[in-house]
């Protein structure tokens, strides 16, 4: 006879997992409903359009880029002792002067953003007026979001589903873009309050780099209690531009949450033209507006 304790254990262990598709649909609908209830105009119907911008995946990507930018802003205040290969003040100036940048972003532990790690990732290209993010799964292009900030126009494409949408950003979206987190002056003042440590030198992909890191999470915005936080940036000694940024946060009630963001494959000082990054909409894609 099968003991009752076995049955109890089986029920306790029983765990249905959601699919990626269900996550996108159910969470997308919920976020859409949240916007509606707050009197905001949602980006579109519940699914799949809602997953364009307010999707936490996108937000995490932006957050990672912001964290990177915060770290970048700090270097003006790191010592530049003789013997150091990198003059950090110059790094900050170069980064700030770089109008266009592209990088690869890989994340773990978030809202299943890149759960096929390390095979899925995003490629971000942006300038002060334009941005484009491409999501890849196993090197296959999955989704694209293009934003022209001055005209507030957004183009979103789902390559898997062969659908696209064109929307206009709301005032609030634009305001969010212009808050202190994306203002260089704001970033530098945030950086003033942080403690940094130098990481020394190491070679990454054949490039001699020098690193700096921080464990200071003041003003960090996480939805869980953070037990540890670390951010590290490695800069090419030769060019003075960052080539790798790693961010890690752990926490949660039982300490089980671990989120990481890795930004690499940087290209700095790019001239990003609209014609080069505005996506072409294939003729067989269906408009869902």
């Amino acid at each position: 006879m099968r003991p009752e304790e076995d049955i109890r254990k089986t029920i306790r262990r029983w765990n249905n997992k959601t699919s990626e598709r269900m996550d996108e649909r159910v969470l997308g609908d919920a976020l859409h409903a949240m916007d509606e209830s707050q009197g905001q105009e949602p980006y579109g119907p519940p699914f799949p359009r809602r997953s364009i911008m307010k999707n936490p995946i996108t937000k995490l990507a932006v957050a990672a880029a912001v964290i990177a930018a915060v770290v970048l802003g700090l270097f003006e205040f790191v010592s530049t002792d003789a013997g150091a290969g990198v003059v950090w003040a110059e790094v900050a100036q170069k980064v700030e002067a770089s109008h266009g940048v592209s990088f690869r972003l890989r994340e773990t532990g978030g809202q299943k953003a890149h759960k096929n790690w390390p095979r899925s990732y995003s490629v971000v290209r942006r300038s002060p007026t334009l941005s484009r993010t491409d999501w890849y799964i196993a090197d296959r292009l999955s989704r694209t979001v293009f934003i022209d900030w001055p005209t507030r126009s957004v183009i979103w494409l789902s390559h898997n589903q062969k659908i696209y949408s064109k929307k206009t950003l709301t005032d609030e979206d634009v305001q969010n873009r212009e808050d202190a987190w994306t203002d260089p002056q704001g970033l530098i003042s945030l950086g003033l309050n942080r403690e940094l440590h130098e990481l020394g030198q190491k070679t990454i992909d054949g490039i001699l780099c020098e690193g700096v890191g921080t464990n200071d999470l003041r003003d960090g915005d996480f939805t869980f209690p953070v037990k540890s936080f670390s951010a590290r940036m490695w800069v090419s000694v030769e060019t003075g531009y960052p080539i790798l940024v790693e961010v890690e946060a752990t926490g949660g009630d039982d300490g089980s949450i671990r989120r990481t963001s890795t930004l690499d494959k940087f290209q700095w000082n790019l001239d990003i033209e609209e014609s080069a990054i505005k996506p072409e909409i294939p003729s067989d894609y269906e408009c869902i507006d």
Binding site: N15, K17, T18, A30, M34, K54, Q111, T223, F224
Partner: peptide, 18 residues
């Protein structure tokens, strides 16, 4: 906070689905 909603979803959806 939409991020809070996403985290609540992530935390409880599997248990609720089961």
């Amino acid at each position: 906070s939409s991020e809070a909603l996403a985290r609540i979803y992530e935390k409880y959806v599997d248990t609720l689905l089961t």
